[in-house]
Design a protein around this nucleic acid. Structure first.
Lengths: 227, 227
DNA sequence: GTCTATATGGGGATAGAC
DNA sequence: GTCTATCCCCATATAGAC
């Protein structure tokens, strides 16, 4: 077997099994079994299971973010003067995540699930990897969104980006509540259609008018704002 | 010790530990230890760890959904004729999840995290519980949203509700990407403020204009898509 | 680089006394 | 209803031969 092939096989199998069973649910035995590789190979090529996890994630995140930046450049170039088109911007952020792995050997659906799962699960603790690889992309997109939505206060924009990634991630993972609300009538296999809907939804959310000052438990008219 | 107290103590401890460590990360030994209850008590009062998990979830979901329905009634009563106010509708769906456990003994932050986590994680397999308890609420809310957004095709509405719950869930869990995009500048402790922002965002998303028919990979004029 | 074999520890579940 | 003690399985990680 080609020396470097082992490493890739482990990454492929780990990706699939992490997606299917979660971090704890995917044992190294299962991973090495599916990769048809020796159990000890994991601890040789990677240092530990957690390190393997981070490697699986990092391998996908880098090209994903490059794709995003490339699309972002296109958006900005198309509107050299004036604000960029918001829908295109959102698409540049969202679509690459749904196109991942389409031409690789692995299971594209599993890959999407894995990525969404990693984004949402606070227990995975890939913040470091995420922060390193995502920081540049975040900066560029935040700047672009600011130009597209100049009236939105920065703090509000951050929150809305957060909501948007959450909406995207829940679709990637295949969260279970979808089939309940719809009675199972939704077609999740039409990736293009989902991306299109998601882009429309997120753009609408980003463009929403600012909430009026209504607060729950607002102070009475006399204005005793202390709390 | 009061007989029924044990059961509650287990539920409280399990809720906290599931929220902090996830399902696999929270061992029965840790749970019973924190509840200061014997290890075997879990398998006596519940049948298994999974059943305990479902019980933890169900205990919160029922009053949560009752609260939602009560708020929904208020919305509909306020606009007996004509469509209900969308923002109020969204608030009725979202706000109760963020108010959970405010007057109970447990850790409210942990509870929110747990609920969001359960919603998003497809591996938890609480679909049955979710379906049973959520079905009635889903029907009512879908009907109300339909009245508020009469021009939205049903399928589109289902998708958008799904996106909305995803956005909500990612806030509940405290997903990690928030602090990355913002550089840690966001105040997550202001629950009222977050709910307000979330309501505005979701309402905007629900109201978004339908995506035009643009599709990726429409037949290219010269079409050398090979790679 | 790859294998076998094993160290070491934790997990969920249960039997049976009280 | 509650406890102790234990069964039995599986996990990650590593040592050391090849």
């Amino acid at each position: 077997m080609k020396p470097t092939a082992t490493r890739e096989r482990i990454l492929d199998a780990a990706e699939r099994l992490f997606a299917e069973r979660g971090y704890d649910g995917a044992s190294l035995r299962a991973i090495t079994g599916q990769a048809r590789v020796n159990l000890a190979a994991v601890n040789y090529h990677f240092r530990s299971k957690r390190a393997l996890m981070r490697a699986v994630f990092a391998r996908r995140l880098e090209p994903l973010n490059q794709k995003r930046l490339a699309l972002l450049e296109t958006c900005m170039a198309a509107r050299a003067n004036g604000p960029p088109d918001l829908e295109r911007l959102v698409e540049a952020l969202v679509a690459p995540a749904f196109r991942m792995g389409e031409q690789s050997t692995g299971d594209a659906a599993a890959l999407r699930k894995f990525m969404g799962w990693v984004l949402v699960d606070p227990g995975v603790q890939i913040e470091r990897v995420l922060a390193e690889q995502f920081h540049e992309v975040a900066l560029h997109f935040v700047a672009a969104f600011r130009r597209a939505l100049p009236d939105l206060p920065p703090e509000e924009l951050f929150w809305r980006i957060h909501f948007s990634i959450g909406a995207m991630a829940s679709v990637l993972t295949g969260a279970p509540f979808l089939k309940i609300a719809s009675g199972g009538r939704l077609d999740t296999s039409d990736v293009d259609g989902v991306v299109q809907r998601l882009v429309a939804y997120i753009s609408g959310g980003l463009r929403a008018p600012l909430a009026s000052g209504r607060r729950r438990r607002r102070g009475p008219p006399g204005g005793s704002g202390a709390s």
